[in-house]
Design a protein around this nucleic acid. Sequence first.
DNA 1: ACCTCAAATCAAATTTTTTTGATATGATAT
DNA 2: ATATCATATCAAAAAAATTTGATTTGAGGT
Lengths: 101, 101
Amino acid sequence: MTDFSKDARIFKALCDRKRLAILDCLKGGETCACVLIEKMHIGQSALSYHMKILCDSGIVTARQEGKWTHYSLSVTGRNYASKRLLELTTPNSQTQAKCCK
Amino acid sequence: MTDFSKDARIFKALCDRKRLAILDCLKGGETCACVLIEKMHIGQSALSYHMKILCDSGIVTARQEGKWTHYSLSVTGRNYASKRLLELTTPNSQTQAKCCK
DNA sequence: ACCTCAAATCAAATTTTTTTGATATGATAT
DNA sequence: ATATCATATCAAAAAAATTTGATTTGAGGT
C-alpha cells in the first residue's frame, strides 16, 4: 500500500486555523518571527512548533538573518501542494464502481 | 481576526494518511462503505468517522442506496479546495516585509 | 571571554483526535 | 410486527497534537 505520509505533511500545514492565520499574515510579505508572536498572541515555543510544521510542508520557507528568522510563502511549495491536491482527488481515467452487493 | 475553521475543515480531509488512502481508493470509482472497510483494514465505526470528515470537507460525497452508502470524489469539492489552497497561500499583490528591527 | 537576544528543543501538562466496543437508527425482507 | 443488515452515534480508552515553561543553541555585541 502506498505511503501517503509525505502528502499528509503538506496538508497538515493547512488543517489548523492558527497556521492558516499565520499564512494569512505571510501573504502580506516576509515576516519576522517576533512579529508573528505579537500578531498571533502565541508563545515563542508554540510559534516555533507551528513554523516547523509550515516549513516541513514546503509551503513556507525560512531565511536566517543574524539572530532573526524571516518567514515567507514559497511559490514552489504552493505549486507542488496544488499539484498534489489535484492528483490526490481526481478520479482515474477509467473508473469502476465497487460495491459489496 | 478572520475565522479559518471552514478552510481548516477542508484540509483536515487531506492531512491524515489513512484518509489519503481512502481517497486513493475512491479515485478508482464510487465505492461502497463495506468495500472500504475491507480494503483499509479498519473498523466499521472508525471508517464512519473518517468518512464524516471527508464528507464535511466537501471533497467526498455520499450516496445512499437502500441500506448501503456509496462514496465518491466530488468535482465541486475538489475545485473549491484547489481554489482555496491557492487563495490561502498566494501573496497579496503589494507585499511589505515586516520585521521587529 | 562574557553577556544578551532570538529561536529551537525538551519534557511535562493539556487538549484534541482517533480507535474501540456497545448501542441506536433506519432501511429492507419475511 | 419481527428480524436482519449497514451505518451512525455514543462513551470510554488510547494515541497524537499542541501548549507551556525551562533549558539549550547559535549569532552578535561588549
